[in-house]
Simulated assay, not measured.
Amino acid sequence: MKINIGLEEKDRTGSATILNHLLSDEFLLYTKTRNYHWNVTGRDFYELHKFFEIQYEALDEIMDEVAERVRALGSFAFGTMEQFSKFSRLKEAISDAPSTGSMLQNLLNDHETIIRHLREDQQTAAEKYHDAGTSDFLTGLMEQHEKMAWMLRSFLS
């Protein structure tokens, strides 16, 4: 069925590509956060275990919203490990169990990387693809990541 929402197909496809890269980033960050939830140790175990759980649950919701936005634009959302690995702009941390400080710093770095990409992608969606809906959506996600980064920064202070 033809989609008639005021955006050309090429613009919808462009926005969907941005979103699928973001979905890949979110999935990698979700997985890393979940890993740290499982493997955190030390004096602050319980507090960090619960904190990481709150963060990965928020990331799970974000992933669902991003995938649904891709579908609303008429494209298919990525859904395989191969796609997530290939298109993520984040790097995997290959380590069994880093220190809690490293866990927090790694997650903070990833949130800040996503925030920087969201700023660029928000402008691209608006200016290049004329997609105010996706641009606004990305701004909201940026605000969520800024809050999560602030909380991580607070643990590191």
Rank of each mutant, 00 (worst) to 15 (best):
E57T: 15
Y36R: 08
S88K: 03
L108F: 09
G74I: 04
N35G: 06
P98W: 06
Y30T: 10
W150D: 13
W150G: 11
S15C: 15
S88T: 15
L138P: 02
T41I: 15
D110F: 09
R116G: 06
M148E: 05
I62H: 09
D110T: 03
K128M: 05
L29Q: 08
H130Q: 06
A67V: 10
P98Y: 09
R12I: 01
T124W: 03
L118C: 07
S75H: 06
A132E: 13
D60C: 06
S154D: 11
G74C: 09
D25L: 03
S75C: 07
A72L: 09
M63L: 15
S75R: 10
I62N: 03
E26Q: 14
L104I: 08
R71L: 11
M63D: 06
F84A: 12
M81L: 14
T31M: 12
E65W: 04
D96H: 01
E57V: 13
S75D: 08
S88C: 12
Y56M: 03
S99Y: 03
H130F: 06
Q83G: 06
A93E: 14
M81H: 03
S135M: 07
A93Q: 13
H49V: 02
E92W: 08
N109H: 14
F76W: 11
Y56F: 14
E82C: 12
E26R: 07
S85A: 14
Q105G: 01
K128V: 10
T100D: 08
Y36I: 07
T80A: 11
G14N: 08
L73F: 08
A93P: 01
L90C: 07
L156E: 08
E57D: 14
D11F: 13
L28I: 02
I94R: 14
D136A: 06
D121V: 02
A132Y: 11
A58C: 05
Q83V: 02
F51W: 09
S95T: 12
F45Q: 05
W38E: 05
I94L: 13
A132K: 13
S15Y: 10
G6I: 07
S95V: 13
L152Q: 03
K147C: 00
A97F: 04
I115A: 01
